[in-house]
Design a protein around this nucleic acid. Structure first.
Lengths: 164, 164
DNA sequence: GTAAATAATATGATTTTTCATATAGTTTCG
DNA sequence: CGAAACTATATGAAAAATCATATTATTTAC
């Protein structure tokens, strides 16, 4: 998103003081994700990738040979979008698709050398950026952020399980 | 995003076990935002709004008469997109645009009665949904989530200030 | 073994979103 | 005052995302 500052009055990303929005959990989550990602996503684009492509690359560098559906879930993108992103990345030579011999419906995706090289460049950049963020959070309540997020995700996954 | 479960093997939204992604702050933020918002955003769409429209509505219900740029920042959307969203919402009679008498460049946006009515319906729904989420987080580390997010946002806003 | 049900991916058509830039209004400052 | 510089919003063209559904493969239940 990466907005400039343009407001004449206040100037923060925190929404109206004391209103509903500025203390609303879903707003805080979306805003934090947005603002925290902005700088690094700029680096991603400089490296010639769009954000969802970077996510796919990172997921594959963790789990090479993942399925489309799996990647869609992990990269927080919809399946049909993933299909097209994978197609574009394949054209660019970053990965290859191979149908799973054990189940012909499945398409497994593997990084090429070029893809692995790009991941080897970007993942460390991501780590460094993350380290800088974590540094900023030292001391205050921000230190609890990761565990708190994991706790939320775990809780939500559980309720999803219950509902089937 | 709201994915279904489709993976044959694991089945959670947490990414590959033990890899880079599953412990990466920007992933945790994006995933948490995505998953936590999914249910409520479904309600938003049932009410006939898209997510950015709901955000605009919520912001206006906090701060009626906000500028386009202000709304773009608060609703985490790009300016040109906001312009179009506002235009569509105006056509639907949810709000009106009036140019600021004090500065003719600015467009101030005001909720109509219909817009206010819709906000009066959705904001309480949002509060209830949030309350349910907070309930899930009681006890564990999730309880620290809001303060941690605010701390992150504050830290990021500060660095943005420093850089001008 | 086969029909129905289910699952994984792909695709066409439409709607959104973005990017760059145009347009219009305001401030600065010589 | 008047020309830059800047700010706020709008808009055209292009790219991306979404939705519904098609296609292909597999499993289930008889």
């Amino acid at each position: 998103m990466t907005q400039q500052k343009t407001d004449a009055t206040s100037d923060k990303n925190t929404g109206p003081e004391g209103g509903f929005v500025s203390d609303y959990l879903l707003y805080l989550l979306a805003a934090a994700s947005d603002v925290a990602s902005a700088q690094f996503h700029a680096q991603v684009r400089k490296a010639g990738l769009r954000v969802p492509e970077w996510r796919v690359l990172a997921c594959l560098s963790d789990t090479d040979g993942a399925m489309i559906t799996q990647l869609a879930r992990q990269a927080l993108a919809e399946q049909s979008r993933l299909t097209r992103i994978i197609a574009q990345m394949e054209e660019r030579g970053l990965l290859i698709r191979r149908s799973d011999p054990a189940d012909g419906r499945r398409v497994r995706v593997y990084l090429t050398d070029a893809g692995r090289a790009l991941a080897a460049e970007l993942v460390p950049q991501a780590r460094r950026h993350e380290a800088a963020l974590m540094e900023m959070l030292k001391g205050n309540e921000g230190a609890q952020l990761k565990p708190a997020l994991k706790s939320l995700l775990a809780a939500l996954d559980d309720t999803a399980d219950q509902r089937g």
